[in-house]
Design a protein around this nucleic acid. Sequence first.
DNA 1: CCGATATCGTGGAGATTGTCAACGATGGAG
DNA 2: CTCCATCGTTGACAATCTCCACGATATCGG
Lengths: 152, 152
Amino acid sequence: MEPTVNAHALNDDVGFLLSRASGLFVRATNAALVSYGLRVRSYSVLLLACEATEGVSQRDLAEVLGLDPSQVVLLVDELAESGLVERRPSDQDRRTKLVAATEAGHTLRVRVLPEVDAAVAAQLGDLTSTEQFLLRDLLGRLVRRTGSTPPA
Amino acid sequence: MEPTVNAHALNDDVGFLLSRASGLFVRATNAALVSYGLRVRSYSVLLLACEATEGVSQRDLAEVLGLDPSQVVLLVDELAESGLVERRPSDQDRRTKLVAATEAGHTLRVRVLPEVDAAVAAQLGDLTSTEQFLLRDLLGRLVRRTGSTPPA
DNA sequence: CCGATATCGTGGAGATTGTCAACGATGGAG
DNA sequence: CTCCATCGTTGACAATCTCCACGATATCGG
């Protein structure tokens, strides 16, 4: 068909493929979350809050999510207003606020998880479970390698 | 086993890893491009314009990049103002405008390519070339599988 | 040929996100 | 106690995404 591809075709650029694939997953996930009043961002925060029984500091949230701390403020505000998480004072540092999931937060997570997984699975499509594992491993190494790249 | 995994930890979520990795690459690429007055978006358009000797319709650009056509307008406007691409009429369809790279566009591409590749390589870090090939293949399948997902 | 309908590029509105600078409150080191 | 780093927060601004609507074509059915 086309004059297909020299070594430097955009279609073969890892960065481009990453951005493109990410976009597809974000859209699919948002579509699965829209009926719950969540978006992929706030959903991620909710998950992290659920994972930490003691709560997570907003600073750590920003670090893990690769966001600017100021963005985390709004996300937590939103979730807190919905009663899904709450800010607890840290008894170790009065500056720190630990974000923890409420009962409602845990409940919603349990209810939403399968739907999000289904949406993700649909995007993963024809990849075998071995390939999915491989992909997860490779991406994990890319992400965790740079312990740093605080967006701001 | 199962519906594909999920330790249920956000760190193991493919969608999250994808989004995170994408962010890292976009930032690294933008940093490499900033001194040329380009961003990752316009750079992608420039590459596609360079790849097609006859030019690419803006509709096709939107399709390939996963963007809304209205976004493409501004990107092409910007590149055209910089003299890197130009809009040519199509002799097959008077509605269509074919975006093609100018001499300056091709020149800039050649000059910038190695820098972007270096930035990407830095992000790929410790992945072996085999792993990089594998990653590219897996991502390519994810992206191309959904021939559709026009953002708008 | 004519009219209904679809497509291409464009423009605009509004929400979401990314980036950056600064501030008050606190913690820690000297 | 003083100086400096850190945490959360706020504000500003650019960039991006998402939708909607329009004029200029193209295409199809009749």
